[in-house]
Design a protein around this nucleic acid. Sequence first.
DNA 1: AAGTCGGGGAT
DNA 2: ATCCCAGACTT
Length: 345
Amino acid sequence: MKTNKQNADFLHIGKKLTKWYDTNARQLPWRQNQLPYNIWISEIVLQQTQVKQGLGHYLRFIERFPTVKELHQASEDDVLLYWKGLGYYSRAINVHKAAHQIVEDFGGEFPNHYNDILKLKGVGKYTAAAIASICFDEKIPAVDGNFYRVLSRIFADDFDISSSKAFQHFSDLALLVMPDEKPGEFNQAIMDIGAEICRPKNPLCMFCPVNEDCMAFQTGRVSEFPVKTIKVKVSDLSLKYFFVKYQNQFLIKQRGNDFIWKKLYEFPTSIPENWNEYIINSKIVNHKLTHKNLSIEINLINIDSKKEFEKFASDNDFLIVNETQADEKSFPKPLQDFYESVCLS
DNA sequence: AAGTCGGGGAT
DNA sequence: ATCCCAGACTT
């Protein structure tokens, strides 16, 4: 940290942001109260997810699992079902595990200090800081992508946000700005400013409450920040599935806890040699993930022998389900789309 | 310290 | 097409 920054007083910036939040905060369901459980779920849902995308999942999740108790009692499959289509499925696995931690390690009471909150599965430094500041008034900056962007612009700071040291760097910077009072409101102010005003592209600097204090804006260099050197690499991946039907039933199996689509259900990836002649339809579905371009071949196959169908399922550990039963499982987006299109036709 | 994990939206 | 999003976990 540069000495001139340490000696200067930037607290007035934080106070302006907190004051702005008082009258400009977005009205969001988890902000109606400050229940740790609701704030926690909202934070997990919104990891790498925009409010617009996560809001519906949040509401359905809270309705199905209103408190830690219901989440603790639920099966992992049920939690995954309510995460279907949201992505980053380890979040669902971990949020379920964390509910068990809260019951077994914290007596069913949500931990009320940063260091304890940090022990929960799926809760890292950002999320622990967000919960601790919003629910328990702890003065810890919740440093995320919004912080990187807002602070890098306010200080015209070219520190590489793709560096593993960025978190520490911007945490130090945040403490120069963060007031002692209302830490939760300050953190949420950065979230809202980052989402609505200090946007990645086309920021609305004319509406920013701290544009007078923003070094990037004052020097006309807002578009130069934040600095990010590492680009995303995208690779190609081909997958092959067989949608094996016998009357109104078909076969599924749960994926492993590694690779993509953790613990979601999928169709068989191979069939017996002599079944090839029963394939009645084959289509290619292209599906884009953040780091992969998927090409998925899905073969539709009708089996008329109940005995063969059940033997294959039994020998290879597949689950036999009908449409209603499948609706209670979580499938990857492209497989869900295919399965729905087959059942509709 | 680097790699990996989804899906949707904006540009 | 490319980038970003209320990041965390594994190696």
